[in-house]
């Protein structure tokens, strides 16, 4: 029975799961931001579904409804107000993530999360003075450090 509720709930849950899977599996930072946007959309749809009524109308009073207000079934306005603010906050969070990605690209020149993590760990090790025998400014030490960490990753896997 393909009832309308099955379609709507599977749409909302499917959207959230697709976004979550993208966040877990992808390596490109920009695509992770897109997955986060999709996850937010799915959660918003789930919230709106929780306030839906089968016979409900939109929570806006029309002039011809003024005479019999108590007979009209309306949808729940509270989840709608919550989702309204959540969407606006979502675009702010998205802009913040985009700004961080721009800084990462300017600093490291790559968008791959694994490479960014390696270089970040290497930079941290250099700044705290751990396990870097030669100067950090020479490209040889950078390459050797990166290769060493790559081999470490391979060993772990």
């Amino acid at each position: 029975m393909p009832a309308i509720e099955v379609v709507l709930y599977s749409g909302a849950i499917g959207l959230s799961i697709i976004g979550l899977t993208g966040l877990l599996l992808l390596n490109n930072v920009f695509r992770m931001l897109l997955a986060l946007v999709i996850l937010e959309s799915g959660v918003n749809l789930l919230l709106i579904l929780s306030g839906f009524r089968l016979a409900g109308v939109a929570p806006v009073i029309l002039p011809e409804q003024l005479s019999n207000l108590s007979a009209i079934v309306m949808n729940d306005p509270v989840p709608q107000a919550l989702v309204l603010t959540a969407i606006v906050i979502g675009v702010g969070v998205q802009a913040l993530g985009l700004a961080m990605i721009l800084r990462i690209k300017a600093q490291y020149g790559t968008l791959n999360m694994l490479k960014i993590r390696e270089q970040l760990e290497f930079d941290l090790a250099v700044q705290s003075g751990v396990a870097t025998p030669v100067s950090a400014h020479s490209p040889v030490s950078l390459a050797s450090g990166r290769e060493r960490q790559l081999s470490n990753h391979k060993d772990e896997q």
Partner: peptide
């Protein structure tokens, strides 16, 4: 979940 029959106490 009860679809379409939300118990809206606050709403």
């Amino acid at each position: 979940l009860p679809y379409g029959q939300t118990p809206m106490f606050l709403g």
